[in-house]
Amino acid sequence: MTAPFYRYGLFGDDTSLVFAFVIGLGFGFFLERAGFGSATKLASQFYGRDLTVFKVMFTAIVTAMLGLFWLGWLGVLDLSRVLVLPTYFTPQLIGGLIFGVGFVSGGYCPGTCAVAAVTGKMDGWVHLAGMLAGIFIFGELFPLLANFYSSDPMGAATLDQVLHVPYGVTVFLVVVLALAGFLAAERIEKKLQAVH
C-alpha cells in the first residue's frame, strides 16, 4: 500500500470529503488548544510578549516536514504525488505583506477567526465578515489584478531546487534554523517578562 492513498485510488471523491471533515476536526482542535482562538494571544507575537504563534507554526512545519521526509525515504509515501503549489514570487511577497498588516490589525488569520467566532469571540465574527468583504473586493478587481496575479511564475519550485542543496540537507537546515529560533524565542520571552 502506497501513500498518498487518495492519489493511488484507494477511495473516491465522496469519501475524500469525510476525510476532509475529520482532518479539519483535528486542525481546529489543535488551533483552539494552542490559544489561537484569541486575538490578544495571537497579536502578542508582534509585540514580543508571547511568541506562541512562532513556536506552534514552526513546530508544526518541522513535524510535517520530517514526517514527509522519512516516509518518503522509507518508500511508504510517494513524494512525487504530493501536491506542491506553484510559486508566483512577487504577488506572493506583496500578498504576504498585506496579509501581515491585516493579521496584526484584525488579530486573526482565516482559520483562527472561524475558531474564535464559534467559541464566542464577537471580534472573530467581525473579522470573518471583513475577510469575506476583502475576498469579494479582490474578486471584483480581478480583471485589473489578473496580470500581476500571474506574474513571476516559478512552477512548483522548492527551496532545495533553488538553493541547489540536496533535499535531506535542506530539511536538516530548516530543523537547525527552527531549533535556534525556539531557543531565541524562549530567551526573548524571559527577558521581557523580567522587565515587566
Binding site: 493579521f103 490589525s105 473579522h127 468583504a133 476583502g134 473586493i137
Partner: peptide, 16 residues
Amino acid sequence: AFFGGALMGFGSKLAR
C-alpha cells in the same frame, strides 16, 4: 477587526 480582516482576505487571494 473588520479592516484587518478585509486586508487579510485580499492578501490571501493575491498570495494564493
